[in-house]
């Protein structure tokens, strides 16, 4: 073996040992995270799945009757579940669509070369920085029929004859108010995602389009929108899944009322599990929700992959 070859093989050996050493280190570093993931994700998920096959009606461990798939059958044949699923679907579609449209407008505005742009950007992120609970409590006050700001503004501007109840008089109006509160909060998140997407579009494209005589609308439709599709897709996946799981804002703003008109699937699940102590029914509902979200995510991911190839 020549000197040079030996040198190479030694170097290769060194690389190999240091590689297995660093792999060990990597596993050691990953261990805390793995324990955490197991403890707070995998174990509870497994336990919830098992519980969903029994009739667990108390928070304590014990011997409960095995029901098999009966809880799933009961849930799927409960009219209240389908009503709640309908509300969830409406909430998800409308809030995600509105957040995308408003978020796009906001992102374009924030991307414009304005003075004090940093200030606008900071202000716009504020709603998203608010905890959902605070946002819900705030909107409940704004919408309060007696001393809420909305009624005062509408009547003083002459847009309404008198004070009206936004969260108690009509289930559909109440549902839309919950949507509005969610849109107000999450539009800024969407806007910031899209703003990040906008900043990756090369300026030269717009300049070239201008030289070719394209107007603002045309360059938006032909350049901005197509190049933003990956970002939009990510935002869509994130927001749909989040919206599908909506719970806290409903809990704070309406408690599911009036006439269960704002009861979403997760809120109904919560009532079943904790208020009624039907933990198995709650678990079954939670698993069905997970399946629905999983299906949605897979559809989205497939669409994304098709686009990118």
């Amino acid at each position: 073996m020549s000197e040079a070859a030996r040198g190479v093989s030694e170097a290769g050996h060194r690389v190999k040992t240091s590689r297995s050493g660093s792999a060990r280190l990597a596993y050691a570093l990953l261990l805390p995270a793995a324990v955490l993931v197991f403890g707070v994700v995998l174990y509870p998920a497994g336990r919830a799945l098992v519980i969903s096959f029994y009739d667990v009606n108390s928070p304590f461990p014990g011997a409960y009757p095995f029901l098999g798939l009966a809880n799933y059958a009961a849930v799927l044949s409960d009219g209240r579940v389908w009503t709640a699923a309908g509300h969830t679907l409406y909430f998800t579609v409308v809030s995600t669509a509105a957040e995308l449209v408003f978020g796009m407008g906001l992102a374009l505005l924030l991307a414009a070369p304005l003075k004090l742009r940093w200030l606008f950007r900071s202000i716009v992120i504020l709603p998203w920085a608010l905890p959902t609970i605070v946002n819900g409590a705030m909107w409940r006050l704004i919408l309060n029929a007696e001393y809420g700001v909305l009624n005062a503004v509408l009547t003083q501007l002459g847009l309404a004859d008198g004070y009206r109840s936004w969260l108690g008089s009509d289930p559909f109006v109440a549902l839309n108010m919950v949507v509005a509160a969610d849109v107000w909060k999450n539009t800024s998140l969407v806007a910031f995602f899209l703003l990040a997407g906008l900043s990756t579009i090369p300026r030269e494209l717009y300049e070239a389009a201008r030289v070719d005589g394209a107007g603002a609308v045309r360059s938006f439709l032909r350049i901005t929108l197509p190049l933003l599709v990956p970002t939009v897709a990510i935002v869509l996946v994130l927001r749909t899944i989040e919206a599908f799981k909506v719970f806290d804002i409903v809990y704070v703003m309406t408690g599911g009322g009036p006439a269960s008109g704002t009861q979403t699937i997760t809120f109904f699940t919560y009532l079943q599990a904790f208020s009624s102590q039907r933990f198995s029914v709650g678990s079954a509902l939670a698993y069905l929700t997970v399946l629905a979200v999983l299906a949605l995510a897979m559809v989205y991911l497939r669409l994304l992959r098709q686009r990118s190839t």
Binding site: R47, V50, P61, G62
Partner: peptide, 19 residues
């Protein structure tokens, strides 16, 4: 791993415990 978690979780439902 997930299946293992499920089995572990299963033991818990059947096992005693109480307060």
């Amino acid at each position: 791993v997930a299946a293992g978690a499920g089995i572990l979780a299963g033991c818990d439902v059947a096992g005693g415990g109480g307060n």
